[in-house]
Design a protein around this nucleic acid. Structure first.
Lengths: 114, 114
DNA sequence: ACAACGTACAACCATTTGGTTGTATATTGG
DNA sequence: CCAATATACAACCAAATGGTTGTACGTTGT
């Protein structure tokens, strides 16, 4: 029953990034490994709330966790960030196609006019 | 009372893109102008539902509408798409900083070892 | 004039989201 | 062993989301 195509993943990635706390967490864990409690200390919300944000990012594949003693160290996955960027590049390519078609029209018009 | 900083805008942009129907609408309106009803015809949901998706994209600045008679023609804004891509590039830069710091550590270690 | 079309918007509903508190479990330090 | 720490997770709640139907209104073509 899994959709399989990348749309589910795209949903998860964009959704995960559509929250400023989660984007801020991403900045921190991309800059360096950080325990969940170290992250939680940075925000004015409960530990559990931050834990949930980290879980959303982890499910989306934007960060990974590694256990070290009683701590869980989170680390940002830059490849996942790049995969989102490439989705946007694909969107931009669609737009380039539109421009190319407009250019063709202009070219054929000037043929008539020339 | 408006937050002013780009975080509100980033929230709106990522949220708008976190839905496959809206991403699909973006592909269509980036490829070329399309009326709301022409868009609605492409999806198995009510006209009103599609209208709401278009409104979300418009509020986020990802598309603009232009009236033409009784039709409302939507067109994708590639600059907005690029602005989202650049936010991701900034995230990637944070990660590059991490790597640079790691490289510095390695360099200072080999100084000791050399 | 008027029927059909394209759009806008309100009211409603089920589900998801983002937060809370409380409880349980594993690890560490003395 | 025991207290403190770090995490996990369930239950709960208000608000937002994504969908529906129904109604209203401007535009167009005959």
């Amino acid at each position: 029953m899994v959709n399989g195509d990348g749309e589910d993943r795209a949903d998860a990635l964009f959704h995960a990034l559509a929250d400023r706390t989660r984007r801020d967490i991403m900045r921190r864990v991309l800059a360096g490994e950080s325990s969940v409690s170290a992250l939680a200390a940075k925000y004015e919300m409960s530990f559990a709330a931050v834990q949930k944000h980290v879980a959303v990012l982890e499910k989306a594949g934007l960060l990974t966790k590694r256990r070290s003693g009683r701590e869980q160290l989170a680390s940002g996955d830059v490849e996942a960030v790049r995969s989102v960027a490439s989705m946007l590049t694909e969107l931009e390519q669609v737009w380039r196609g539109r421009i190319a078609r407009i250019d063709e029209l202009i070219a054929s018009d000037s043929t008539k006019e020339g």
